[in-house]
C-alpha cells in the first residue's frame, strides 16, 4: 500500500501540531508548579469542556450566521439523556443513542 507525499506531509504536520499542545503542559508541569489560581480555575474545565463539546455537535455553525440546531440530533438526545440520567451507564447510553438516531433517520 502506498502513501502519497501530500498525504504524508499532512499527516506528519497534523500529528505534530496535535502532539505539541498535548504534551507541553506535562513537560512544563515537571519543571514548574502552575500558580494556584490557574489550578483553581481549571478545576471547572472538565465540566465546561464536556458541555461545550456536547453542544458543538448539536449545532450547525457558520461564522456570520446564527447557529441552527440539528433537529435530528436534538430529538435523539432526549432518549440518550434520559438513559444517561436513569441508568448511569455510558455503554447503554451510547447504544440507545445510536438506535434512536438510526430510527429517526429512517422516518425523517
Amino acid at each position: 500500500m502506498i502513501i502519497s507525499k501530500r498525504i504524508l506531509l499532512i499527516l506528519v504536520g497534523s500529528a505534530l501540531v496535535t502532539w505539541i499542545p498535548r504534551i507541553t503542559p506535562f513537560i512544563l508541569g515537571k519543571m514548574v508548579k502552575f500558580p494556584a489560581v490557574v489550578t483553581r480555575f481549571l478545576e471547572y474545565l472538565p465540566l465546561s469542556i464536556l458541555f461545550a463539546l456536547l453542544l458543538e455537535t448539536v449545532f450547525n455553525a457558520k461564522a456570520g450566521h446564527l447557529a441552527i440546531p440539528k433537529w435530528d440530533i436534538v430529538i435523539a438526545l432526549v432518549p440518550t439523556v434520559i438513559t444517561a440520567v436513569w441508568l448511569k451507564d455510558l455503554m447503554k447510553t451510547v447504544v440507545v443513542g445510536i438506535v434512536a438516531m438510526a430510527l429517526i433517520r429512517l422516518v425523517m
Binding site: 448539536v58 440530533i73 434512536a100
Partner: peptide
C-alpha cells in the same frame, strides 16, 4: 455511516460523560 446512526455515538458519548461529571459537580 449516518444512516445507521453511528455518527451519533460521538454526541451520545459526550452526553453520557457530561452528565456523569455534572451529577458529581
Amino acid at each position: 455511516p449516518e444512516q445507521f446512526g453511528l455518527d451519533f455515538a460521538l454526541t451520545a458519548m459526550f452526553a453520557g460523560l457530561f452528565i456523569t461529571q455534572f451529577q458529581w459537580e
